[in-house]
Every structure is written in structure tokens, then in C-alpha cells.
Nucleic acid binder design. Structure first.
Length: 399
RNA sequence: GGGUCGGUGCCCGAGUGGUUAAAGGGGACGGACUGUAAAUCCGUUGCGUAAGCUACGAUGGUUCAAAUCCAUCCCGGCCCA
């Protein structure tokens, strides 16, 4: 591949700062006969990677495939300090052990996408260099940036204007992240568009430390299944890359029609021109192709059929066979029977007896496929029972 | 440090002594309709099968009765220093 072709591939779906920066970097390393050092910082506070994260990981993979080195930085130190007080309220600060564990899960999941050849992948933790930094060092680092410039960051601006508190330590986040770039001497740093500010701080700080500033490459954030918020675990609007083929297929089918093109664009390599046309002419089919493609990427060709069949079966009101099981303790029985509402609560399908009762009144609970009418129903468990909530939440109960 | 305003359920927000498990909106969850979509419409949205209990930043107090009044404390915004 010529450099121009490489640039074209790498820049697809991404925003580069400064413009043309990728080409310059590629030419530079060609001259110096070395690999690019491509950085991605990850926050080990959540352990479930979703297809939104995958956008950037897939971009990383492209760099690897072109022979470059990807450096994954687990932000174990920054996560340990605890999340800023911002919108998400205070998140309990994680212990080093937790962040380490989350980091491991992250790596395990990311390796579904990344090439784990050590020549192409380096994994570091930022506690490595941030922890030993003394206060004097930190002051020196922070003296390179001004409050006014910090406040330029979009979420700081918004919060400041609307009177939402900003703690001083939150200013340290961009700086710490920027210092990571210095520590590993990054040529390029990748991130979601929400990371742009932090990535740019990296450029400034690298300059201050006498390095050539990194080029930043940002990819769009994938909106969640609700079509409004960004995809995230806490909003529960995500498709995890580790979830089962069945669940993945189902969620993919539920992506809003309006969002489908964007999902295809950002999370698959499907032919965009063809898919755009298909969405126009036959949306349902487009959904199926997308759903199948996702399963193909994260599971395998052979899993598609099962996932699709299950989907169709449940859509028709069928009870699938891969249901979670719950073993009821005999002590819960009275005269060999148990009250329906209690059973639903115990099985975890409802949060409380009261909720189960309400759901029955709303005709939302089924037993062996039949709607439950009577809130006072007493059940004996001679045979296993299939409890169901809504369309697709099942639990099989037995003694 | 001083002044001032504020802290209500998942979120926003009304409520300034009893009729308040707390208006309204959002979200979420069910149902109808559908393509297990969207839109729309309907219902539910603290726990307890009940008596009742718990809940309006925390603790203590006043009162027959407190989210509402008082005291102290904690947290935050704004203004002044």
C-alpha cells in the first residue's frame, strides 16, 4: 500500500488534527525506519466493552495491520482517584485492585479486536509513571496550562455557566492524560470525539517536554440504542462485544431505523452504498443483515443461524430453550405451594412482590406462556415452570 | 472568613404545618398497535398479599400532627473579602 492509500484508510470516518498529520507521521517513521506509536487511553472503571468502544479499537487494528505499534494505556491511576463530581455524581473511588481487575477484563475483550502480537501491542498502566510523581513534578506539569484554557473544555464551560460544581482535581485529568503521551512518546493518540480536548492538551504538554506533538485522531461516538444518549453501560443502552450471539442479534434488530445506517457505518465493514440503498428499499432486511454481521464479527458465521432462529421463535411468542434457571428452596413452600408474586420476586424477574402484583394487573407476566390473571394464584412445583416477563425475559423454576 | 440562596423519589421539579407515598414533566417498565422498530394510545413506577412501615441532606427539638417551624452540623451555587 502506498502512503496515500494508507492515509485514506486511516482517515476514513475519523477527524485528524492537524490536518494532514497522519501523512506527515507516516512519512516520518518511514524515514526513521520505525513503527508509529499509537496511543489509546482507556478508563478501567467499567468492565463491559460495547460496540461503541469497538469503533476506536477497530481503528487501532487498522494501524496494527499496517505494521504499527499500538499502546493501550490502562488508566488505573486516574481511575483510582475517582470520577469527577460532574454529571454522573460521585462514583466511589476504585481501589487499585479493582482497576487492575477491570483492566484485565478490558484487555480480554479488546483482544477480540486487536492483534495481540507483542510487536504490535504494548499494554501499560499509567500508575507506572503517575504514582511516583512528586508534588513538585505535578506543579511543574500543571504550570503549563491556564485555568482559562481548561475552562474551554466543553463540559467545563457548561458546568461552570450553569453553576454545577467543578472540583480542582478534575483539572488534573486532562493533564495526567497528557502526561501519559509524554511518558510513552506517542506519535498519534486515538479517542472518541469527546476526548478531543484532552488529546489536544497532550500536544501542548508534549511540546513543553521537548517532544514532537502527537497527531490526534478522533472517531464519532456511537449513540446508544435509545438513539439519544451516547452508548454507555450506565444507561444500559449498549450492545456489549462479549454478549451472547442471541442477545446481540436481538439488540441489533432493535436499533432505530433512523440510527441503523450510523450503526452500520461505525460498527461494521459492510458496503455502505449498498446498505444505504437497502435501508431505503427494505429496512427489515437491512436490520437482519446488520444483526447477522455483528454476530459474524464477534462470534462466528455458524452462530448466526441459531441467533436468528431464536429471534424469530420468540417473536412468534415461543419460549426459547436457553433460559436462565432458578432453583427454588423447598423452605419457601407453604403446604407445598408458593404465591405467584413471591415466586417472581425470588426468581429475579421482578424486584419485589409488590411489583409482581402490579405487573400481573398490567398483564405483563406469563406462566408457561399463558398470561396470569389472578394475583392470588398459588403454585405447586411438581413440574418446572417457565416464568416470563414481557416479551423476552424468561426464567425456568424448579425445586 | 462575611452575606445570601439552596439540598425533595431514577432524573428534573412543585409543595412552606394536617386532605402528601408527595403535583407536573422526563426516563424506565408493562399492555394495545406493529417489524419483539418508530410514532401514537393506555397502565404502572417505595416496601409489606394486610395491619402498617420507611422516605423529602444528617442529627436533635417544638407540635396532637413536620418535606414544611427551630437548633446544630454536612454539602453546594452566587456575591463580597
Amino acid at each position: 500500500m502506498t502512503i496515500d492509500e494508507q492515509v485514506k484508510l486511516l482517515e476514513r470516518g475519523a477527524t485528524i488534527i492537524p490536518e494532514g498529520g497522519i501523512k506527515d507521521k507516516l512519512e516520518l517513521v518511514q524515514k526513521e525506519k520505525r513503527q508509529l506509536r499509537v496511543k489509546l487511553g482507556v478508563d478501567p472503571s467499567s468492565s463491559d466493552l460495547h460496540i461503541g468502544h469497538a469503533v476506536i479499537l477497530r481503528k487501532m487494528r487498522q494501524f496494527q495491520d499496517l505494521g504499527h505499534k499500538v499502546i493501550l494505556i490502562i488508566g488505573d491511576f486516574t481511575a483510582m482517584i475517582g470520577d469527577p463530581t460532574g454529571k454522573n455524581k460521585t462514583r466511589p473511588a476504585l481501589s487499585l485492585e479493582e482497576t487492575r481487575k477491570n483492566g484485565e477484563t478490558y484487555i480480554a475483550q479488546a483482544s477480540k479486536i486487536l492483534d495481540s502480537d507483542p510487536k504490535k501491542l504494548e499494554i501499560r498502566r499509567n500508575s507506572e509513571w503517575l504514582e511516583p510523581m512528586g508534588f513538585a513534578e505535578v506543579i511543574k506539569l500543571s504550570s503549563n496550562y491556564t485555568v482559562a484554557r481548561m475552562l474551554e473544555r466543553d463540559d467545563f464551560t457548561k458546568r461552570y455557566k450553569s453553576g454545577i460544581p467543578i472540583s480542582v482535581h478534575e483539572f488534573m485529568y486532562p493533564l495526567a492524560q497528557a502526561y501519559d503521551s509524554v511518558a510513552i512518546n506517542a506519535d498519534i493518540e486515538l479517542g472518541g470525539t469527546d476526548q478531543l480536548f484532552n488529546l489536544l492538551v497532550g500536544r501542548d504538554i508534549q511540546k513543553e517536554y521537548g517532544q514532537i506533538p502527537q497527531v490526534t485522531l478522533t472517531t464519532p461516538l456511537l449513540e446508544g440504542l435509545d438513539g439519544i444518549e451516547k452508548m454507555s453501560k450506565s444507561l444500559n443502552n449498549y450492545i456489549a462485544i462479549a454478549e451472547s450471539a442471541e442477545s446481540m442479534f436481538k439488540k441489533a434488530m432493535q436499533v432505530n431505523d433512523d440510527m441503523l445506517y450510523r450503526y452500520i457505518e461505525l460498527s461494521t465493514n459492510l458496503d455502505l452504498v449498498k446498505m444505504k440503498e437497502l435501508i431505503r428499499t427494505d429496512v427489515k432486511k437491512a436490520h437482519r443483515i446488520y444483526a447477522a454481521e455483528l454476530v459474524r464479527i464477534y462470534h462466528s458465521e455458524s452462530d448466526i443461524k441459531n441467533a436468528e432462529e431464536r429471534y424469530d421463535y420468540v417473536a412468534k411468542g415461543g419460549i426459547p430453550d436457553d433460559i436462565a434457571e432458578y432453583k427454588l428452596d423447598k423452605n419457601e413452600l407453604e403446604d407445598g405451594k408458593i404465591w405467584v408474586c413471591k415466586l417472581y420476586a425470588l426468581s429475579g424477574l421482578t424486584q419485589s412482590n409488590a411489583e409482581a402484583k402490579r405487573m400481573i394487573k398490567n398483564r405483563g407476566l406469563r406462566l408457561n406462556g399463558e398470561k396470569i390473571e389472578d394475583t392470588n394464584l398459588q403454585l405447586s412445583l411438581d413440574k418446572p415452570l417457565v416464568l416470563q416477563r414481557g416479551k423476552d425475559k424468561f426464567v425456568k423454576v424448579s425445586l
